[in-house]
């Protein structure tokens, strides 16, 4: 039995995820949005279609990597909706709100002047001969904070799928309660059909 199970498991090593629930996680660091599709108990959504929608229009279709990851550079400061379709009936979406994207992106669509030193971390602020404008510093701080917050947000997103013992026990409790209700209904029905006789007997 164990050997058979091992062989079967080995046979299915290449199979994609087929768990209950697909989820999408994405964050914006600057205008660069990166994320991934994943299945709630484990596994990534590999080679899946991703559609990017803003204002109800599809702006891009991407495909996830073998790690389930995708990346997209926002061109406008609007809500971006990422929809991952795993192809087996699992679909999930994630919204990157306009607030998370840098203010330098125009709401209309055209990117404004790109920031100097976008790749740099805020820790190494160059206080050189040309002092940075307040907007530039703010943008860099925002990027740094987004970078630091990403693992935390990832954890919170995954945490939502954690199964709690009280959910499981609560579900079983509901079933027990429904069984009780069914008993009451069926007893009621029996009592009604055999009504007069039982009422006589009770007297």
């Amino acid at each position: 039995m164990l050997r058979a199970a091992t062989i079967l498991t080995a046979l299915c090593v290449a199979a994609p995820a087929s768990a209950h629930k697909l989820k999408v996680f994405a964050t914006a660091i600057g205008a660069d949005i990166s994320g991934y599709g994943y299945f709630a108990p484990g596994g990534r959504a590999q080679d899946s279609d991703v559609t990017v929608t803003t204002d109800g229009k599809v702006v891009a279709t991407l495909r996830t990597s073998s790690e389930g990851e995708f990346a997209f550079t926002a061109k406008s400061r609007t809500d971006h909706i990422f929809s991952v379709d795993a192809g087996d009936g699992h679909v999930a979406t994630y919204r990157i709100a306009a607030d998370e994207l840098p203010e330098t992106l125009g709401a209309g669509g055209v990117a404004q002047t790109p920031l100097a030193g976008t790749q740099q971390r805020p820790q190494i602020l160059p206080l050189g001969p040309t002092p940075m404008s307040a907007a530039e510093i703010r943008a860099m701080v925002e990027q740094g904070v987004a970078h630091q917050l990403r693992p935390l947000r990832e954890q919170i997103d995954a945490w939502q799928e954690k199964l709690w013992l009280h959910d499981i026990l609560g579900g079983i409790g509901y079933i027990v309660g429904l069984a009780g209700l069914a008993f009451w209904l069926s007893a009621n029905r029996k009592l009604k059909s055999a009504g007069p006789a039982i009422r006589e007997a009770r007297r």
Binding site: C12, P16, A19, G43, I172
Partner: peptide, 14 residues
Amino acid sequence: FVASLVHFPVGPTS
């Protein structure tokens, strides 16, 4: 109800 919580690892997924 509970059976769907029993996961088996199958390759990289479950």
